[in-house]
Structures are given as C-alpha cells and as structure tokens.
C-alpha cells in the first residue's frame, strides 16, 4: 500500500481545500480495505471465538484508520469534528463487521474502546501534521508523515507483549510488575479487555509470546477508558485552541514562490 495515496485522502487532497467529499471517499476506502484485511486474517473462521474476533476486527480498523484519514480540515474546530466523525465511523464499521457474524457479548465496550483509541490516534496525527506544517513541510508530506507516525505510535506499543516480552521476563526477577507493565501499555490489550478476551492465552499469542505462561494482571477497564478519554480531550482540544494552519502553511513551496 502506498502511504502517500492512503494518507492524502484522494488525488485532489494535496492542493484543494479539504471538504467532506475526500473524507467520505477515504472512509469508503478504509471500510473496503479493513473488511478485506479482516476477512483475510481469518476473522470469520470457526476457530476464532467471539471475543477474539472482536479484538481482531477492532484492532485492524484502529491500525488502518490513521493511514486513510484525510488529515486536518481547514480549521481547528472542523478538524476536531472530523476526528470525532471519523472515529465514530470507525466504531460503526467495527460494530457492523462484528454483528455480521452474530451478536457478541462486550461489543459495546469494545466499540467504545475503539472510538477512544481512534480519537486519540487521529488527534495525535492532527497534532503532528500541524507541527510539521509549521516547520515548513508541504501539506501532503505533513499529512503522510503524521499518518505513519500515528500508526507507529499505535502499532509499536500494541506489539509490546511480543517484542518487549523477553526483556520483561528477565526484568521480572527483580521487578515483578514489569510483566504487567508491558501488557498494560499495549492498545491491543486495551481492546482485548474491552472485548472480554484473555489476549495472551489466545492460540496465536500462546504460541508466540513468552508472557502467556507467566503471572501478570491485565489493567482494569475503567481506568483505561478514563486515560484514553483524558488523552483524547488534550489531543483534540489543544490544537483546536491553537492557531489553525492556513492553506498557505501547507503550500509552502508555492507561498515562497509568491514572495517577491
């Protein structure tokens, strides 16, 4: 997949003011891609239990969302609305994908967790995009870089139980809380506890993570919800209060060309 295309929100997004049409087109692309990836990853196979399916669906949508996000809107307020709207759309998409194979317990809490993760991630992407634009990056580059940055911010800690697990196991001899800490920083864990899923004892994780056979505790759901809600408010609220970048901020090359 080409990150430039994915994050640009359509062919005209590099130059035209960003309205609702590119956002709708981008969301349609997200929905199509997400559903294909979810199906390809075996979400509808009979081996996958309901809660694990919910984790798979919500995590795929969470990771893909920033890549398809059309970026900041013309104003900070519009950006905030776009972030919320996009996140709500992602949540609805997950609900439809999950309900298409039947009712699943915990679907409401899993979808709310996805909503909060999306708002946080897209809020971070908008923040990064704004900062990059102020440092002189052109609109398309700022948007692409921020999209990939937000995805990395989500995916790297999500996989922490895998890549950080061996180090945590070694550290646990001195600091028993190290295992729980590695599990707790993962957004995948957050989606799992909201889905009622014992993530590390799913077959795949049991086979590939060293943590499954060790003693750890998952974080509690309510504090995780509260943490994301607070982070969302900061990330969506702070840029809205700051100066919104103008179109000329993004078209830095052409702006410079116009200066005598």
């Amino acid at each position: 997949m080409n990150g430039t295309t994915l994050a640009a929100g359509g062919p005209a997004a590099g130059t035209a003011p960003r309205g609702s049409r590119p956002a709708v087109a981008s969301f349609a692309a997200l929905a199509l891609t997400a559903l294909l990836v979810i199906a390809a990853m075996g979400a509808y196979s009979s081996d996958l239990q309901g809660s694990a399916r919910l984790v798979l669906i919500t995590s795929v949508i969470a990771v893909l969302s920033p890549l398809f996000w059309p970026g900041r809107a013309a104003s900070s307020r519009a950006t905030a609305w776009r972030t919320l709207g996009w996140s709500l759309g992602a949540m609805l998409l997950a609900a439809i994908a999950a309900l298409s194979v039947g009712s699943t317990p915990h679907i409401a809490s899993a979808c709310v967790m996805l909503l909060l993760i999306c708002v946080t991630t897209l809020g971070a992407a908008a923040w990064a995009e704004s900062l990059l634009a102020r440092r002189g990056a052109d609109m398309a580059s700022a948007r692409n870089a921020s999209a990939w940055l937000a995805t990395a911010l989500l995916a790297v800690p999500a996989a922490a139980p895998l890549w950080l697990g061996p180090a945590a196991e070694l550290a646990a001899a001195e600091r028993p809380r190290a295992l729980a800490a590695v599990v707790a920083v993962s957004p995948l864990t957050h989606l799992a506890i909201a889905s009622g899923n014992d993530l590390l004892r799913n077959q795949w994780f049991y086979q590939h993570s060293n943590l499954a056979g060790l003693r750890f505790d998952y974080p509690r759901l309510v504090p995780v919800f509260a943490g994301y809600a607070a982070l969302s408010l900061v990330l969506v609220g702070v840029p809205a209060g700051a100066r919104s970048p103008r179109a000329s901020d993004f078209n830095s090359t052409s702006s410079k060309e116009q200066v005598p």
Partner: peptide
C-alpha cells in the same frame, strides 16, 4: 451452544475461562 459441531477439534474442550481455545 457456542456454534461448534462435534467434528470440530475444539468440541468438548474447556479453556482458561473466557471464550478462548
């Protein structure tokens, strides 16, 4: 009750406590 037929390899088993394998 969970939608598994007797020919499924999970049928009849019990896991850790969620709906995992």
């Amino acid at each position: 009750a969970e939608g598994y037929k007797p020919d499924h390899r999970y049928y009849g088993g019990i896991g850790y406590g969620g709906d995992e394998r």
